[in-house]
């Protein structure tokens, strides 16, 4: 089955963080879209080297937080002041001060939900399988090697030219990854 289908992409191995940074800059400048970098630890400045824009997760978090705050306030107002009025300590039936702590906590809760589920959604996770997981050497990405993977689905992908590009970036180990 693997022999006839189109490969998933091309994988290039690098030995140092500096090498992978330069490779990422080269791939970025060549205008690729469907590609990624895998490193054993976070490499500072990689987002810029890859030309990544600021993540959109913040918006999910913001909307989650705003929803949490509003629903907290509305809920407390409805429950304590409208549906079943509870007079406590001579205080008003509804006061934004009194309702603030629970609303604030709901802000944090739904903000965190927004962040985590937004992140999962944007990353298309959870995913049960990924072609790279079959690749033997890719395991080293959690050890001491750095990888660039360019997908065949990228409009600029060409087996020979992309391979040449990665070679010129200094990779000594380039392979095709089966789908």
């Amino acid at each position: 089955m693997g022999e006839t289908s189109k490969p998933y992409g091309i994988i290039a191995e690098f030995e140092t963080a500096a090498a992978i940074m330069h490779a990422a800059e080269k791939v970025r400048d060549s205008g690729f879209r469907k590609w990624d970098v895998f490193t054993p630890f976070p490499v500072h400045g990689m987002d810029r080297a890859m030309g990544l824009k600021n993540s959109k997760v913040g918006w999910f978090s913001f909307i989650g937080g705003a929803t949490g705050y509003t629903s907290g306030m509305l809920m407390i107002w409805y429950l304590n002041a409208v549906d079943y009025a509870i007079p406590i300590g001579g205080k008003p039936m509804f006061s934004p001060h009194g309702a603030f702590p629970p609303s604030y906590e709901l802000t944090i809760l739904l903000g965190a939900f927004g962040a985590i589920f937004g992140m999962l959604f944007l990353n298309r996770l959870p995913k049960l399988h990924h072609p790279l997981l079959k690749h033997e050497r890719f395991k080293l990405a959690t050890h001491d090697r750095f990888f660039v993977v360019i997908e065949t689905g990228d409009p600029k992908f060409s087996e020979t030219e992309t391979r040449a590009l990665l070679e010129s970036a200094g990779s000594k180990h380039i392979e095709l990854v089966e789908d």
Partner: peptide, 12 residues
């Protein structure tokens, strides 16, 4: 500042 205000408001 909210904590200071809230605790005083709540204790009354």
């Amino acid at each position: 500042h909210f904590s200071q205000y809230f605790i005083i408001w709540n204790a009354n």
